[in-house]
Write a protein that binds this DNA or RNA. Structure first.
Lengths: 119, 119
DNA sequence: GGCATATTCAACCAAACGGTTGACGAAACC
DNA sequence: GGTTTCGTCAACCGTTTGGTTGAATATGCC
């Protein structure tokens, strides 16, 4: 596996954008069509389509065409390498569940607007 | 904490570069001066200095000036939020130690060249 | 003081990013 | 068959990125 590092580049880069993280959060709840993914964002469908392409190339989501609708599905396994890479820096063997809850409350306020964006 | 999402942007972006991940790996072993961090890389000192600035602004390292030498120290706590964010995607409550070992062997071959870069 | 060492700053560059728009292709509906 | 819907493509645009170089700013040494 020579390109291990490159895969990490792709994964972390994909995660480094709030829109893309918001999309992943949305897909946590259910598979979605591209248009439905795009709907809550104040940007063009083409822009969201690009984001989905980046997530897809990173392996973080998969896309399956059914009829004219393209369904997007979370592929959380792709986070594994990145997560494991982080583990190599210690500290995280036992994630503090308390901190986790607080974090979620801050990152996904109300969970009705689980976008990971400010506001 | 309104800018939680922005912090994640910064952290993931900092991690999305192989040079910067290599630097973090080097700092795992020991604190280092800027010049010593730069030495193994085939790029200018100024470039490495910029990378260190990015890592520092992300909180992933701290820098302390002693005399004319600036020492760089790993700050693994900054990975916590990013790590926790990943936990929200499930899958990782129990990291597979076996996978972890294999990963380390691939990412840091021999551990004498723990750069995280290809080759 | 004068010179070497350690690090950053400033200006610049090519390439990539995140977005837009308009055209296009493919599937579905009537 | 014509039109609408879904999604991508291509071209473009301003900004950011990751790198370079040379000058500037400490600090340490003799």
């Amino acid at each position: 596996m020579p390109a291990m590092s490159h895969r990490l580049d792709i994964t972390f880069h994909a995660l480094a954008d709030p829109t893309r993280r918001a999309i992943l959060s949305m897909l946590l709840e259910d598979d979605m069509a591209v248009s439905d993914v795009a709907e809550p964002f104040e940007m063009s469908l083409a822009a969201v389509s690009k984001h989905l392409g980046i997530l897809s190339r990173a392996g973080l989501i998969s896309q399956e065409r059914r009829g004219r609708v393209k369904w997007c599905q979370l592929e959380p396994d792709a986070l594994r390498d990145a997560s494991i890479w982080m583990q190599s820096f210690g500290q995280f063997e036992a994630v503090n569940l308390d901190a986790f809850e607080k974090f979620l409350a801050a990152e996904f306020p109300g969970n009705s607007d689980a976008t990971g964006q400010d506001g």
